[in-house]
Design a binder for these strands. Sequence first.
DNA 1: GTCTATATAGCGATAGAC
DNA 2: GTCTATCGCTATATAGAC
Lengths: 185, 185
Amino acid sequence: MARPPLARERVLDAYEAILIDDGERAATLDAVAKTAGVSKGGLLYHFASKDDLAAGLLQRLDDLVVADVAAMRTTAEGPVAYYVRTSVMEGNALDRALVAASRLAQGGNPAAAARLREVRERWADTLRPAVRDEAALQLVMLLSDGLYFNNAISGTISAEQPDDPFVPTGSALDALVALVERAVR
Amino acid sequence: MARPPLARERVLDAYEAILIDDGERAATLDAVAKTAGVSKGGLLYHFASKDDLAAGLLQRLDDLVVADVAAMRTTAEGPVAYYVRTSVMEGNALDRALVAASRLAQGGNPAAAARLREVRERWADTLRPAVRDEAALQLVMLLSDGLYFNNAISGTISAEQPDDPFVPTGSALDALVALVERAVR
DNA sequence: GTCTATATAGCGATAGAC
DNA sequence: GTCTATCGCTATATAGAC
């Protein structure tokens, strides 16, 4: 109970990977089981149904968001810079869970859509004390959503990231963060 | 040829509506045919396959974007204000085609993902002369993506829009537009 | 141009052996 | 705890009548 079965985590990893790389349609029980290296029966021992599998992913997202909000509150650069900067997907656990949940939501899963909105509100509550007003808060949050959305779309196209002009990195990201901080403070 | 068959347009409307309201998974040929008021055979006369149906939707999106870019170039309030303001979904033809295509892209359709990126670049080219630098351009574009993304997520949850704090309308939208224009000009 | 009927394949889920 | 085998359903697509 303290340490969940390894197979369970591997199944969740595989589900996430297929959602991100190939979309909601491709994330069948067969495909997830195969990628995780278990049989379909084995998968269904850990997750009783496909809905249960989705619930497992959303629970994982929730845990990661709790940790992220804690980090956001204590970071030296301040919550706004932290939030914008970490919205550029680096492929860490939170990024992956978030994009996978977004795929689920757009595929028509109401639980995923509801959870994403809850998560968003938790982030908003953390950012609010650091910005001037509600318009500034919206600017920061919507910009972050835009970054995630573009990363999610980019991911669908095979093997291409290097020269994408719409997901800024390096000095372009620094410039964007600086511009946002001037606008909202 | 000059005026496409009415049934074809009705099928496309139905496909769009189901994608928006219920997600990619729900947009089966059966469901689309039923909503459009034709049989599955009738649908497949106009669109030879499901891929062909998706291609029809993407073509419709393309036509609407051409018209939108033209409007953006000639509007009195300027392209930036026009772009941000019209990113709040009002349920017009362009909004609907865009959200439907986004559902398709996140569902794993590579053609939809590629088309969305092309569309984005056309908008970027139109906005570029009106903003200070590339960071400012990114801020405007990402914010618009965020607005669309949130509207897309909201749409998934049944019958709820009135008190959504994240899709600003009225004076809140005016404040956001003003803030963005100050930041990017 | 639109219909019904049907072929074929893939999906989620169950049963029961090991 | 993990497997194989299989059921029942739904999906896309085809064939051919009207």
